[in-house]
Amino acid sequence: MRSADRLAVLFLAPLFAFAAAFFVLPLAELVLVAGSGPNGAFEYLAILANPRHVQTLVATLALSAGVSVATLALGTVVALFLARTRFAGRALLVSALTLPLAFPGVVVGFMIILLAGRQGLLGAFTQSLGMDRLVFAYSMAGLFAGYLYFSLPRVLVTLMAAAEKLDPALEEAARSLGASRLAVLRDVTLPGLSPALIASGAIAFATAMGAFGTAFTLATRIDVLAMTIYTEFTLNANFATASALSLALGLITWGVLALTRNMAGTGVAAAG
């Protein structure tokens, strides 16, 4: 309807203005600053030339990939179990598993400290068994646990929805044709879940890549990309390097999300 077209333009204008002023412009500024260091536009290459940064990048990628795989593995087991089993207290268990959905990274970091920190529950438990205190919160392992804590609820939400939609007749048909349980899992169940696996895996990867709060809480010594950007910017006042690293980080996460969105169709769109 023509009369509504004008209103639509009017309604989009403030959004346009906001996005231009506080997103497009600052991002352009980031690109400019990244190219304004002593190395000019080569700041991007300078990142690659710096072995410490390359090491950090590789470590971050490996950590994020590891967290994604672990979250997906655990998530698949739990989602399939909860989708197919009915028992008293199931709703409560589902709530408990998905409630930490929006705990911020700092809080997640604190949870890991309580679990595996110097005065943590795991340490007390292992000590009571007569072993050494188990403390791993302030290392890569702690970060790994933190990202797992963070990703598990949201991966579960997606996977449980997908598992509920799987047609049990498909698995029964495969069994009737003589497929073993393992073969059914490999040939029917996992392919059926694959769009959800790709989607939630991408979210887990992207969030782990950009994570800052958890690392910040656990220790500033852990070398992941987000911490490096933070130290370069605030402690070393090295704006160009920080900008270039931020852009690299943004491009990687955005690229992974865009790639999987094409692979899995819709559903990954509003990934966090």
């Binding site: 506080f22 412009l25 600052p26 500024e29 980031l30 987000a226 931020s246 996460t253």
Partner: peptide, 15 residues
């Protein structure tokens, strides 16, 4: 949503 908050914050501060 797809760009890490740290990068966004940096961009806002620079601008």
């Amino acid at each position: 949503v797809a760009i890490p908050g740290l990068a966004l914050a940096l961009a806002l501060i620079l601008a």
